[in-house]
Design a protein around this nucleic acid. Structure first.
Length: 781
DNA sequence: GCGATCAGGT
DNA sequence: CACACCTGATCGC
């Protein structure tokens, strides 16, 4: 506990920055320990508000948030009514805390008042540092050792967390506390020789289709896979892709009839030659007509004397690139159950990898040096190729990885055309109904984004909208829709790997059976398909993880998912001991304009604001949240103010999945009459129209609504950031507070400096040239 | 009718 | 502005 308190204290907001800041005092551990019996709210509150301070206007509260060069606080707002500098008609003898609610200055039921009319003098408790690590449980991290968590044996235990108490992650095992003593030994050797390599693996993936087409074209025959599927030879004669017969003279329809006949014939042959039952039950007719796509693979198989497995490879759509990442397990899953052939194939594959690795090293050793230059490995600056920097990783700036956003953006669009946001949108091809589906089935969907593919592994991360039969290992970093989109309960593409909390949510909300879920422990190295995998708390939402992959090729890949960097992450020894080759980074706020405060600061702002307005017993407070996310905010509010918060039954069910302690859970109630602080979906607060609806519902009970919208950063064009922006319409007040669960720009910088990867792959590409320029100039200064 | 997917909105 | 998610329309089984 002392460690935890120390860590929490380190996050304390700067107290001297605002002359009118209320005085904070740090709650002691002893005070926390008094919570064993829930005291009456009144008692606790009055005991915590004994110190009288200078009057404080509520609009001053935003000053607590250290915003650089914030404009004077009386800036006009939408209504022009708030932020009245100094209203004093309540200040005489005013005691601002809840004990005040029945005092002489209490307003009449019908009286409408301005929040800014309130003067405040109070002593506010800071967020209790112990909260951030209240259920801290030390875990030793010993690589290679048996994986054990609080529930007991964890190794390979996909069902272990079902019904058991989850003790990991956000809040319960907060990053601030949990990371203090963790040590992770990574056995990846620190090699100086591969520092100049580019992401050849990635390019391979991205260029898969063109390469295959070229290979097919070696014999002088082009395979028009995207349009008609017909072969066109050197003389322009059109051939059937299956039997090779000249069908130039036939009409398009006749050609289709012809090729369909050939397909039917091949299907019949394939059925006759069926060797093993298909464990995976792929749907629809087999696309034997695609055999020519896999000619290289089939030839390779033939050379190994394993032609009898051709059908399986075709059925599973194993093309040359996919082949590289097949594991023994994969082969078994495909239906190659005999050990001998599997051994033969895996051995041949390891030889193949050695060869391609040697070629890659050779290619990259000729890469030009200098900051911002692209390597000459054929990289065209695609999304995954922002690299080729010849600097010592430790000396790199974040800008080194983003030499030109304009270029990147343009090229990113070449992968997923027409999409500004590479990471978050669906490729155009997927919008085209039947055609897209056909392409998916034929394995022509080469648009699996780079950030979801882990180089050197057969793994995909948060790629459920790009489900393909060529992958059996699907990682989910956290339970947010934009990351699990595409995942349905009919998922049948292998295993899903995620944290215990995420697994519970996936099971409960989507209905994925536990048999398909593999729970990953935190801070412990496990081995999946021959690859070491370690997860860390991502400090994003409950259950969110950062994943470290250590493939046999020695090029470790760190996928941040969505994350918020904090200094405790820096104490993870993994960053000292393990050389990260590729960093797949949450670049949501990779722009200097995003420089928001620490969460603790924003939480304190919300607490202060509630304190300031709560003297009126007819005030309803609303705190916005996501399905999962922002919990820390309303839990802190409840704990510090010693007031339960109301949540819906559905929300409580979710909260029960998040691993909160019983002590934390006591602050939630499903009885809405028991609390005047209500947790609501964020979009409820999105418009005053909706807020008005809420207001009408509670017309008899509440005369004022104060809503807090933790929206990340409220940024409007032309207006610089203004922390804790406040809007008011009649008796509804809405605060937009910059409570972010993503890393700020400066946090991203710190993180990149810490990790010093060779390559960075951005998971979000949403910045225009302007912000890129701003970032570059800031960093190079 | 149901689930999955997608567009548009907040 | 972007996040995460909602609603309603549409499609396919």
């Amino acid at each position: 506990m002392p460690l935890i308190n120390a860590a929490g204290a380190a996050h304390r907001p700067h107290q001297s920055s605002a002359s009118q800041s209320p005085q904070f005092h740090i709650p002691t551990t002893a005070a926390d320990d008094n919570d064993d019996l829930l005291p009456s709210t009144q008692t606790v509150l009055s005991s915590r508000s004994s110190t009288s301070q200078k009057p404080l206007e509520i609009s001053d509260l935003s000053l607590h948030i250290p915003a650089p060069k914030r404009p004077k606080r009386s800036a006009p707002t939408a209504t022009g009514k708030e932020n009245v500098p100094s209203i004093t008609h309540h200040d005489v003898g005013f005691k601002p805390n809840f004990g005040r609610r029945n005092g002489a200055a209490a307003l009449d039921d019908d009286e409408v008042f301005e929040a800014s009319d309130i003067d405040l003098g109070c002593s506010l408790d800071l967020i209790q540092p112990s909260i951030l690590g209240c259920s801290y449980e030390t875990r030793d991290v010993n690589s290679g050792e048996e994986v054990v968590d609080g529930d007991g044996d964890f190794s390979g235990a996909m069902n272990e967390t079902k019904g058991s108490k989850v003790k990991g992650g956000y809040l319960v095992n907060s990053i601030e506390s949990r990371l203090v003593n963790s040590t992770v030994d990574c056995d990846v050797e620190v090699s100086g020789s591969d520092g100049f390599e580019s992401d050849a693996e990635l390019d391979l993936l991205l260029n898969l289709r063109p390469q295959l087409d070229e290979e097919d074209g070696i014999s002088g025959v082009g395979f028009d896979t995207e349009e008609t599927g017909f072969l066109v030879d050197e003389e322009g004669l059109i051939q059937c892709p299956l039997c090779g017969v000249d069908i130039s003279d036939l009409s398009d329809e006749q050609r289709l009839v012809h090729t369909n006949d050939c397909i039917d014939k091949e299907d019949a042959q394939a059925q006759n030659a069926a060797l093993t039952s298909d464990k995976k039950q792929t749907s629809g007719p087999q696309q034997s007509g695609d055999n020519s796509r896999f000619s290289t693979v089939l030839k390779w198989l033939h050379d190994l004397g394993l032609s009898k497995y051709e059908d399986i490879f075709v059925r599973e759509e194993i093309d040359w690139d996919t082949l590289q990442w097949l594991t023994d397990e994969d082969l078994n899953n495909m239906g190659i159950t005999a050990l001998g052939p599997r051994r033969k194939i895996t051995h041949a594959l390891s030889e193949l990898r050695k060869e391609s690795s040697a070629v890659e090293t050779c290619t990259n050793s000729h890469a030009p040096s200098g900051i911002g230059q692209q390597s000459n490995n054929g990289s065209d600056g695609r999304e995954g190729s922002i690299n080729g920097i010849n600097r010592t990783p430790a000396n790199k700036l974040i800008t080194d990885y983003f030499p030109g956003f304009v270029t990147n953006k343009k090229n990113a669009c070449s992968i997923i055309s027409g999409q500004k946001d590479v990471g978050k949108k669906i490729p155009d091809s997927l919008h085209k109904g039947k055609t897209a589906k056909r392409n998916v089935r034929n394995g022509k969907l080469g648009n699996v984004p780079a950030w979801s593919c882990i180089p050197g592994t057969p793994f995909r991360v948060d790629a459920f909208r790009h489900l393909r039969g060529d992958c059996f290992h699907w990682f989910l970093t956290h339970f947010h829709m934009d990351h699990y989109q595409g995942l349905t309960k009919s998922f049948c593409h292998g295993m899903i790997y995620c944290s215990p909390i995420t697994a519970k949510l996936v099971n409960m909300k989507i209905g994925i059976p536990w048999e398909r879920l593999q729970v990953l422990p935190l801070d412990q190295k496990i081995n999946i398909a021959g690859i070491d995998v370690t997860c860390f708390d991502a400090n994003h939402c409950p259950g969110s993880i950062i994943i470290l992959f250590e493939p046999p090729n020695g090029k470790a890949v760190l996928h941040t998912g969505d994350f918020r960097f904090c200094e405790q992450m820096g104490s993870l020894s993994v960053f000292q001991t393990c050389r990260i080759h590729t960093l797949i980074l949450d670049t949501t706020y990779c722009d200097p304009q995003y420089d928001f405060p620490k969460q603790e600061t924003v939480i304190q702002f919300v607490i202060d604001a509630i304190q300031a307005e709560a003297f009126n017993p007819k005030t309803l407070f609303l705190i916005g949240c996501y399905t999962v996310g922002k919990e820390r905010l309303f839990l802190e509010v409840a704990r510090v103010l010693r007031k339960k918060v109301y949540v819906t039954a559905a929300k409580l069910r979710i909260l029960k999945c998040l691993g909160f302690s019983a002590e934390d859970m006591q602050w939630f109630t499903v009885n809405e009459r028991e609390s005047h602080i209500h947790v609501v979906p964020l979009w409820t607060l999105a418009s005053f129209k909706r807020l008005q609806h809420v207001s009408n519902q509670y017309a008899n009970r509440f005369s004022l609504i104060v809503a807090f919208s933790p929206t990340g950063w409220a940024l409007s064009k032309g207006k610089k950031k203004s922390p804790g922006r406040r809007w008011q319409q009649g008796t509804i007040i809405r605060y937009e507070v910059p409570y972010s669960e993503h890393s700020s720009f400066s946090e991203l910088k710190d993180f990149v400096k810490l990790v010093s990867p060779v390559n960075i792959i951005p998971s979000v590409n949403n910045h225009g040239p302007d912000s890129a320029l701003a970032m570059t100039s800031l960093l190079s200064s």
